[in-house]
Computed example of a mutant assay.
Amino acid sequence: MDVPALLEAASLLVPEKIATENDITVNDVWEYLVHDEWEVALGLLEEFGDVGPLPLGFWEALAAAAEQMGQEASAAWCHWRCFENRHGTIRVDLALRPAAETRRRTPIPGRGVLRPMWDIGNRREGGGPALDIACLWVEFTPFLEPGGRAPVRLAPLDPARWRRLRPGQVITLYEDRTAAGTAVVLEVAPPSGA
Rank of each mutant, 00 (worst) to 15 (best):
P53G: 11
L54C: 03
L54N: 03
P55H: 07
P55Y: 10
P55N: 08
L56V: 01
L56Q: 02
L56E: 05
G57W: 06
F58M: 01
F58R: 00
A64E: 13
A64D: 09
E67R: 14
E67P: 05
Q68H: 03
Q68E: 09
Q68A: 07
M69S: 08
Q71C: 13
E72H: 08
E72G: 02
E72S: 10
S74L: 05
S74D: 02
A75L: 02
A76Q: 05
A76M: 02
C78K: 00
C78T: 02
C78P: 02
C78M: 07
W80K: 09
R81S: 08
E84Q: 06
E84T: 06
R86E: 14
H87W: 11
H87N: 12
H87E: 12
H87K: 06
G88Q: 00
G88E: 00
G88A: 00
G88C: 01
G88P: 00
T89G: 03
T89A: 08
R91K: 14
V92Y: 04
V92L: 04
D93F: 07
L94I: 06
L96T: 07
R97S: 14
R97P: 08
R97I: 12
R97Q: 15
P98C: 04
P98L: 05
A100P: 00
E101H: 03
T102S: 00
R103M: 14
R104N: 10
R105Y: 00
T106I: 12
P107D: 01
P109R: 12
G110W: 00
G110P: 00
R111V: 01
R111D: 08
V113N: 11
L114K: 05
L114I: 12
L114E: 13
R115T: 15
R115A: 15
I120V: 14
G121A: 07
G121V: 11
G121H: 05
R123D: 01
E125A: 14
G128W: 11
P129A: 14
P129I: 12
P129K: 09
P129G: 03
P129E: 10
A130N: 13
A130K: 15
I133C: 12
I133N: 07
C135E: 15
C135K: 15
L136I: 05
L136T: 07
L136P: 06
L136N: 09
W137Y: 15
W137F: 14
W137N: 11
V138E: 01
E139T: 11
E139I: 12
F140Q: 15
T141P: 00
T141K: 09
T141R: 12
P142T: 05
F143L: 06
F143R: 11
F143W: 13
L144D: 06
G148E: 04
G148D: 04
G148K: 05
R149I: 09
A150V: 07
P151A: 09
V152I: 08
R153H: 08
R153Y: 09
A155G: 10
P156M: 09
D158G: 07
P159H: 04
P159V: 08
P159E: 04
A160H: 11
A160Y: 09
A160V: 14
A160W: 11
R161V: 08
R161N: 08
W162K: 03
W162V: 07
R163M: 13
R164I: 12
R164H: 15
L165S: 01
L165W: 01
L165N: 00
R166L: 12
P167E: 02
G168T: 02
Q169S: 05
V170T: 15
V170W: 09
I171F: 05
I171S: 04
I171M: 04
T172H: 14
T172L: 10
T172F: 13
T172C: 06
